[in-house]
Write a protein that binds this DNA or RNA. Sequence first.
DNA 1: ACAAATAGGACATAAAACGGCGTATTATTC
DNA 2: GAATAATACGCCGTTTTATGTCCTATTTGT
Lengths: 247, 247
Amino acid sequence: MTQKRTRADAQTRMMRLDQIAAQLKGEEPCTVEDLAQTHGVSRRTIARDLEIMRAQGLPIEAERGRGGGVRMDVNWGVGRLNLSYAESVDLLISLAVAEQMNSPLFLAQMGSIRRQLIASFSREKRRAVEGIKKRILIAEQASLPVQTSMGKPKPRVVQTLHQAFLNQKLVEIDYVREDGTKSKRTIAPHYLLLCSPVWYVLAWDHLRDAPRTFRCDRIQKATEEFEKFALQGPKVFEPALDHYNVL
Amino acid sequence: MTQKRTRADAQTRMMRLDQIAAQLKGEEPCTVEDLAQTHGVSRRTIARDLEIMRAQGLPIEAERGRGGGVRMDVNWGVGRLNLSYAESVDLLISLAVAEQMNSPLFLAQMGSIRRQLIASFSREKRRAVEGIKKRILIAEQASLPVQTSMGKPKPRVVQTLHQAFLNQKLVEIDYVREDGTKSKRTIAPHYLLLCSPVWYVLAWDHLRDAPRTFRCDRIQKATEEFEKFALQGPKVFEPALDHYNVL
DNA sequence: ACAAATAGGACATAAAACGGCGTATTATTC
DNA sequence: GAATAATACGCCGTTTTATGTCCTATTTGT
């Protein structure tokens, strides 16, 4: 028996709408009665929910009569992603990389995704975010010895690096050179360079006061500093670009 | 002023909460009064909204006293993406590619994104979606002559191809061979092969009844058929794999 | 013809959303 | 130390949304 349930507040109702959408995406058609049962509300309420969703443009189809039911056109499934800040940054950088790689198969629907992503950043960061594409460089694939010598960078390092790169903040890193020498530096990460599958950071080394190139998987630890840096043109890094044969 | 604002219904309120979240992400601190003004509601209402958002786990910080205000920890910005079906498919494939490319810089936070994406598909499609990684192959970069001869595939074709690939449906394609010969075929797209930046489809050609390789940018038109196909192992395509030097 | 399903109108009602007011608290400024 | 500017939050009254119930119309398959 349908007792007087507490009236759903805004969130609860939106959640219900989301869940209904999810159920409707399933191939198995569900009737209004089913939905009413699962959500513990009356048929009428479900009907009203559907009304709202239709008004929002969701292509919900209903078949009347015996064996009928409600379902949503499969090709219209709405995916809702809730991204944390770190995820947003990573996804944004990945999209920029895909775009720079010029592989058309990537770019089919990515424009709208990128626009939505950018919109989720604060106004102050928009400019930085929009210019990110220019700061990602693609070079030829790495040579086999380099590929095999590649280590697995720590997610924590990658994440810090991404954020500092995006925010144009200085980073303090622990770096291990090829010969095993360890050093601690403060760098300004200007460009990311992909020699698939190896990543490099083209940065200004604030200790040596000179441009340097760091291989991401050799960075042991990274800490984002408070200080921002001003972006420099790619001219400073031209020697490195030549060396890696940037496209 | 007799502002007879209609009271917000569930959607309107959720939108307001979202907008407040967006404003809070901005570096400039806003006071409750500001928010009240922008949204045309009372301070008390904004206070209640903040209360709700805090209860949801959003790290909203408030500073009392002069010059104070409300703001959200910048590193916690929540980005909401509403993806259409086509966008979900494309993003999913792109993530799978990134994963296969084994570039660790991609993979920092992508796991959770992928999980959320998969969750937005219907139960029937989950299995297909989860197995998609194995069906994407990465080879060495294309030779320069091939790279320069690459055309720009039509978004419509790419989209159809993606969906047919994911759904394991047959596709009818109009194909133009290197020598200009045009043909119409019905193929089963088993694998996608990336020789950056060129894409190939390893498919079973149902007219010739033999495995064939098609370059995506040479496909002029694609129509998803109704019939599904059963996935075959990669053995059938081994000659092609050898030819393209798959990693 | 009947049963099963959607579509939606009308009405009543409880609870949520909201505004307004008041008080407590905290921090800055003079 | 006092004034000021901000958040935090409790209470109350009003508005109206969200919901349930009952109802009729319409479609459709058996």
